[in-house]
């Protein structure tokens, strides 16, 4: 079977043609510009994942929230549960880019990291 999908690994959005065998295993991928497209086709057909970006509350900083991202793509089914964990979290300024905000979220092995710095505000 041939399945058409859009690679969402980067904004180029290549149109992939993915060949699956009778056990739904990927045997061939065309239409990709780089090798990440092949990887994407494999995960999308087995365990679809998405990277998560959102904000987290911060105390004592110049702004009330700072942006965060997941260190790797999370299983699609964990997105909303992860959001509620992050929304219940509050961190203290100062924060640097890359600081771990939530470690190993929902035992996924994936961390939530700060993506902007914030200084202490007096």
């Amino acid at each position: 079977m041939i399945k058409e999908m859009i690679c969402v690994a980067c904004p180029l959005g290549c149109q992939l043609k993915v060949t699956l065998d009778e056990n739904d295993a990927v045997t061939n991928v065309t239409g990709n510009t780089c090798k990440r497209g092949v990887e994407y086709a494999h995960t999308e057909c087995t365990n679809p994942t998405r990277s998560l970006t959102t904000t987290v509350k911060v105390e004592g900083g110049r702004l009330p929230v700072i942006p965060v991202k997941s260190s790797a793509a999370l299983p699609k089914g964990l997105l909303f549960e992860s959001m509620s964990v992050i929304n219940d979290t509050c961190i203290k300024a100062p924060v640097k880019i890359g600081d771990v905000v939530v470690k190993n979220i929902l035992n996924s092995g994936i961390d939530i990291l700060a993506t902007a710095p914030i200084d202490v505000c007096n």
Partner: peptide, 10 residues
């Protein structure tokens, strides 16, 4: 590498 807007800017 895939960055967020603030990371790219920084």
């Amino acid at each position: 590498e895939e960055l967020s807007g603030p990371e790219y800017a920084h």
